[in-house]
Amino acid sequence: MKFYLLFLLLLNPTLAKTISLKRLVPNKYLTVEIVLSKGLRVSSNCQKSCLALIHSKQRSLKLKKNSIGLKGHPASEICHKVGGKNIILYDDLKNQYDYCFFTKDQSYINSWDLVK
């Protein structure tokens, strides 16, 4: 029973640690709240369902030969394959993160979570 409760707690995205990242849009930064939902790093508007989570289930790991290197990195390619747009988010230390963005519902998922 204890393990079951713990399991439920871990699955609950509202209890997961929220990370604030920033997105550069012309001349300003937008804040994007990232939460852990079902083991995936998604934007906080993905509490129940969103395109980012739907596409994470259809993730395609099939990459063509020579698909990295001169063409960019694999996470970015997979994001575009599932219909998202790979965008760059920043943390407070100015480190850059790849997030797959879905314009329709403004949801985000970590692009590398699509590769795993």
Partner: peptide, 12 residues
């Protein structure tokens, strides 16, 4: 320096 991403471009 902080980590960068080249995203989808071949600019590694």
């Amino acid at each position: 320096p902080a980590y960068r991403t080249q995203d989808g471009l071949g600019l590694c």
